[in-house]
Design a protein around this nucleic acid. Structure first.
Lengths: 217, 217
DNA sequence: GTCTATATTGTGATAGAC
DNA sequence: GTCTATCACAATATAGAC
């Protein structure tokens, strides 16, 4: 009796998490506009009315899911890039970090990129939330630190000059795009899931060198 | 009178094109699931019923728009890559081709990537339509030709070995991703539209060298 | 907190006049 | 070919019992 009572009471928290997980799964696969509350409820194993009890509206759920997804995709990389580690080490670290994350969440890039394009207003809001401060602080912080390191390396004759923005864009492009274009790549090359994973593993090993060679004088 | 009569008669063709253009514009911005037939009709300057007269259903319109968009995004590049031009020339050509296309259609990548993720079944269909033949012919044709050229260059000591798939993935990543991630890039860096275009122009000049250096021994 | 039943709107699609 | 008016249903959201 006590046991049962305890379990019921604890459900409120656990249920909310289950709903959020189900919502994430459905939103990532179908996109926000294509997602159906009924499907989320079913996947969470609860009634549809409960979704509204916890998140008020579909928009509320969508907001929560997008914030979480964007946090999974970008901040770890940006934090790494803003650190004090040597440049080459940063590159290797970002590649492994990003490729491992996306191997486990292959729908993440497609979803986040699509949402950003469909709801540009959410992007500023998200960027602001990264530091809790205003929009203008995140970018500069990463790019200033990176720019200084690049300048150092250039003066030491180890590297060509490159704007830090282009540095970041190139690196993220090479990591993220293959996942966003996964269905097309699989269709064109005839890869299956295992083949795709193998291709990604290979990238993990060779991408850092490819990227760094491209920057050398 | 004759004039008016002529214009009315010619409208059927012109109207269908106007609708398709409007549909493209709305679908690209909102995604298929998020697009509204009413908005398309308004943007085309016609009544909503006309959309059904010409395209039967929303799915019909969506199909037409996706085919056209995917054709704009991929085939020119694949054709270039499968040509007989020297490898380095191909790279320069692809970069200019792709960056110019996307400068004029910044929503294209986000839309196509999203649709592919949400409707993987359409991808095979599209790939098949590229040659009119079966799915297995397009990929190999590009990759075989490219693989041979790479092998040549490797034996001449001009290049490191790299699987042709990775070659293509890297090249497309560097061209396409910045547009797919445009809203995020603009928010993080504080760029406006002009700044983004300037950034792309800079890439057009520097991307080929960066890419090719990354492949040299 | 969780459910069933129901209200309310949004949205794709059709009928039929012009 | 093009419009207005309307239908039919899908999908979000709420009321209220348990």
């Amino acid at each position: 009796m006590l046991q049962i009572n305890y379990m019921i009471k604890s459900n409120d928290q656990e249920t909310e998490a289950r709903i959020l997980d189900a919502a994430r799964s459905v939103f990532l696969r179908r996109g926000t506009a294509g997602a159906r509350m009924a499907e989320i409820a079913e996947e969470a194993g609860v009634n549809q009315a409960l979704l509204h009890y916890y998140f008020r509206s579909k928009a509320g759920l969508a907001e929560a899911v997008f914030q979480r997804a964007a946090r999974d995709l970008f901040p770890p990389v940006l934090r790494t890039l803003a650190s004090d580690a040597p440049l080459e080490e940063k590159v290797r670290e970002v590649v492994v970090l990003e490729l491992d994350t996306l191997r486990d969440n292959p729908f993440l890039p497609g979803y986040v990129l699509a949402e950003m394009n469909h709801h540009p207003e959410r992007v500023g809001q998200f960027v602001a939330s990264l530091t809790g401060v205003s929009l203008e602080t995140v970018g500069p912080r990463v790019f200033d630190r990176l720019g200084a390191q690049i300048e150092e390396a250039v003066e030491a004759g180890e590297m060509r000059p490159i704007p830090p923005e282009q540095f970041v864009i190139n690196l993220l492009s090479l990591c993220i795009f293959p996942f966003a274009a996964r269905p097309m790549l699989m269709a064109v090359t005839g890869m299956d899931d295992a083949g795709f994973r193998a291709m990604i593993e290979r990238r993990k090993a060779e991408l850092p060198e490819f990227f760094l060679r491209g920057l050398r004088p």
